[in-house]
C-alpha cells in the first residue's frame, strides 16, 4: 500500500509508454474495429467505385484536343474525393466517440491525447490509401487511365495525397465538434461533403462551373487536391482544361499547406473532449 499518498506524488519509477507507440497501438485497434463493421466498410469502399463506374460509363466522350476522355477526369476527381475521406470519416467517427463514451474513457487513462489523434490519422491515411489503390486499379483496367511513368510525377502524387489527407483530416476533426450528438453526425457532416464534391470538380469539370461557385470551392482543400491529382493522371495534355491553363502546383501546395496549419489551429482551439451533456 502506498505511504506517499498525502505527500508530493511519487517520482515516476517506471517509464511511461511512448506516445508514438501508443498512437500506433490506437491505429491498429481503430483499423481492426473499422474492418469489423462490415456495412461501413462496404459503404466506404464501394461509394467512390460505384460513382466511378456510373459516371465513367455515362460520360465516355473524348475531351477535345487532349487525347483524354471524361472518365479519366473522373478517376482523378474521385481520387481527390478518396483522399478527403478523412473529413467524413473523422468528422463522424469522433462525434460518435464523444457520444458513446470513448473519449471520456480515454480521458480517464494516462493515454496522451496526441496518441488518440495519431491513431485516428494513421487509420484515415490507411483507409484513404486503400480507396485510392482500388480506384487506380479500376481506372487503369476499365477506363484507359495512364499511370505516370516519371518519378517526379509520383512525388507530386505523394505530396498532394499526404497534404490533402492531413488537411482534410484536421478539418474533419474540427467539424466533429459541430453535431449535437453522434446520431446526427452523419447527416451534419455528409451534406457539406457532397456539396463540396460537386463544386470542386470531382463530378463536374471546373471549367463548366460558374465562377462564383469555383471561388467558394477555392477556399476548401478538395478543389486543390483534385487539381493536383489531375496534374498527375492527365498530364500536360489536360492542362488546357484548367481555368488558368495550368495546374498551378505551387498554389495547390500553398493552399493545402495552409489548411494543414489552419486546421491544426482550429482543432487546438475548438476541440471538445466532452459531449454537450457532460458539461
Amino acid at each position: 500500500m502506498s505511504q506517499t499518498a498525502t505527500r508530493a506524488p511519487a517520482p515516476p519509477l517506471v517509464r511511461q509508454p511512448s506516445a508514438i507507440q501508443l498512437g500506433l497501438s490506437r491505429a491498429a485497434l481503430e483499423t481492426k474495429i473499422f474492418f469489423r463493421e462490415r456495412d461501413a466498410v462496404i459503404f466506404t469502399f464501394s461509394f467512390p467505385i460505384v460513382l466511378l463506374l456510373i459516371f465513367g460509363s455515362i460520360f465516355a466522350d473524348d475531351l477535345e484536343g487532349t487525347g483524354l476522355n471524361v472518365s479519366q477526369l473522373y478517376v482523378a476527381g474521385l481520387i481527390g474525393s478518396a483522399a478527403m475521406t478523412g473529413f467524413q470519416n473523422l468528422g463522424i467517427g469522433i462525434a460518435m466517440d464523444r457520444d458513446d463514451g470513448t473519449l471520456k474513457r480515454l480521458l480517464g487513462t494516462p493515454l496522451p491525447r496526441s496518441s488518440y489523434f495519431v491513431g485516428r490519422a494513421l487509420n484515415t491515411l490507411f483507409i484513404s490509401f486503400c480507396q485510392v489503390v482500388i480506384l487506380l486499379i479500376i481506372g487503369v483496367a476499365l477506363f484507359g487511365l495512364q499511370l505516370p511513368s516519371e518519378l517526379s510525377t509520383w512525388l507530386t502524387f505523394v505530396w498532394v495525397f499526404v497534404l490533402g489527407v492531413l488537411g482534410s483530416s484536421l478539418l474533419g476533426i474540427a467539424v466533429s465538434s459541430l453535431p449535437r450528438s453522434g446520431k446526427s453526425a452523419s447527416a451534419v457532416i455528409a451534406m457539406p461533403f457532397v456539396v463540396l464534391q460537386f463544386i470542386s470538380g470531382v463530378f463536374i469539370p471546373v471549367n463548366q462551373l460558374p465562377a462564383w461557385l469555383v471561388n467558394i470551392a477555392s477556399v476548401f482543400p478538395l478543389k486543390w487536391m483534385c487539381q493536383g491529382f489531375r496534374s498527375v493522371f492527365l498530364g500536360d495534355a489536360g492542362a488546357t482544361l484548367e481555368l488558368t491553363n495550368s495546374y498551378e502546383l505551387g498554389r495547390v501546395a500553398l493552399v493545402l499547406g495552409a489548411w494543414v496549419v489552419g486546421g491544426l489551429l482550429l482543432c487546438l482551439t475548438t476541440f471538445r473532449w466532452k459531449g454537450r451533456r457532460d458539461g
Binding site: 485497434l29 474495429i33 469489423r36 463493421e37 466517440d97 458513446d100 463514451g101 470513448t102 474513457r105 480517464g108
Partner: peptide, 15 residues
C-alpha cells in the same frame, strides 16, 4: 495511479 469506472459507456463494441 488511478482507475476510473464511468457510469455508462458503449464504446469499443466491435473489439
Amino acid at each position: 495511479r488511478i482507475g476510473v469506472v464511468l457510469q455508462t459507456a458503449d464504446d469499443v463494441a466491435e473489439a
